[in-house]
């Protein structure tokens, strides 16, 4: 039965005038969305030509001077840009690692709570920061870490330090602050998917383990963790492809002159050169570099995921 259906569908898929006429509505809608997608998603790609030109708005894309790879040479000769790449990459990886560990830890511990109402309340609270904008989060951070803020207050009271620390003036603090803010904002949210994966584990496994006398820790170690391993793997792989995309808002909002050398990311560099300095070509070149690396990462991860037997991304 299923087979005949499948072949019937196959037959229908032949492009015939009758079928086209029948699907007229679908085709019109598709056409509109393709036009829309072409304008807003594909057309900007033609702007990449700018990276190979000395682009002048008055000359336009067609008549600006062609300079080949000069812009890219400038970029990689620029110490600032090398630092920017390092910052973007390191913060991306640091954020990914810390937020994944926190989310898994939170999900597993939350799952261990038996009392349903407590569990529900904790989970609801845990989502809250995800819904706040980075503007609000950085504002809160600024308050908490200021010289009269709660962190300095606690450190002074416990006599760990004897003078308030200006956290935003030390380059060494910047990456940990960003990683912490990221965990603060997203742990509860990221845990949703792990909790769903834990729920999908067969309860019989836990019962059998209990009968065999397994302790709670052993059950986590030998049932829960292996049970969510596929989810962890696929999410890690998916997120590695996005590592370079994870660096704009918070760095832009928290960065200042004193920590510039560790706070600037590729996107900020693009914004600074492209929009503020009006060097569209250089900004675009930096953007292309980011896109190219991202796509390469995604393809590698996709291949990797396929190899390890996890589901592909596309």
């Amino acid at each position: 039965m299923a087979n005949t259906n499948a072949s019937a569908v196959k037959k229908d898929k032949k492009i015939t005038w009758k079928e086209i006429k029948r699907q007229k509505t679908l085709l019109i809608i598709s056409f509109i969305t393709v036009v829309y997608g072409f304008i807003f998603c594909y057309w900007p790609l033609t702007g990449w030509i700018m990276a190979f030109q000395q682009y002048k708005p008055k000359n336009g894309l067609l008549h600006s001077k062609f300079v080949g790879l000069d812009k890219f040479k400038f970029l990689f000769g620029d110490d600032v840009f090398i630092k920017v790449i390092r910052n973007t990459f390191c913060m991306g990886v640091l954020n990914l690692v810390t937020s994944t560990i926190m989310a898994i830890l939170f999900a597993i511990l939350l799952n261990e709570i038996r009392h349903t109402l407590t569990k529900k309340v904790i989970q609801t609270v845990s989502y809250l920061p995800h819904f706040l904008s980075w503007i609000i989060v950085t504002g809160i951070l600024h308050d908490a870490l200021s010289s009269t803020g709660i962190i300095n207050d606690l450190l002074l009271r416990t006599k760990i330090i004897d003078q308030a620390i200006n956290f935003f003036a030390h380059p060494n603090f910047f990456w940990p602050i960003v990683a912490f803010a990221n965990c603060w904002k997203e742990t509860g949210w990221n845990a949703i998917i792990y909790l769903a994966a834990i729920t999908a584990i067969d309860p019989c496994l836990y019962e059998a383990a209990s009968i065999d006398g397994a302790s709670r820790l052993q059950k986590i170690r030998y049932i829960t963790l292996p049970g969510i391993k596929p989810t962890i793997m696929i999410l890690l792989i998916m997120n590695i492809g996005n590592v370079l995309n994870a660096g704009f808002e918070i760095q832009y909002l928290l960065g200042n002159g004193l920590v510039q050398s560790v706070s600037q990311t590729i996107d900020i560099y693009v914004l600074k050169w492209g929009i503020s300095q009006n060097d569209y070509s250089l900004g675009t070149a930096a953007g292309i570099f980011k896109s190219a690396v991202s796509i390469a990462l995604i393809l590698v991860c996709n291949w990797w995921a396929k190899k390890t037997g996890e589901e592909r991304l596309f």
Binding site: D12, S30, V34, G37, M50, G274, I275, T284, G287, S291
Partner: peptide, 28 residues
């Protein structure tokens, strides 16, 4: 039964991974 469902999906999935970047989009 839609004739171009695979192609249309592909057209949109691509946009998840490739975009022109801040400056070309700004100019558009």
């Amino acid at each position: 039964r839609f004739l171009f469902k695979a192609q249309l999906s592909f057209f949109w999935v691509i946009t998840m991974y490739v975009n022109g970047g801040m400056i070309p989009i700004f100019m558009l």
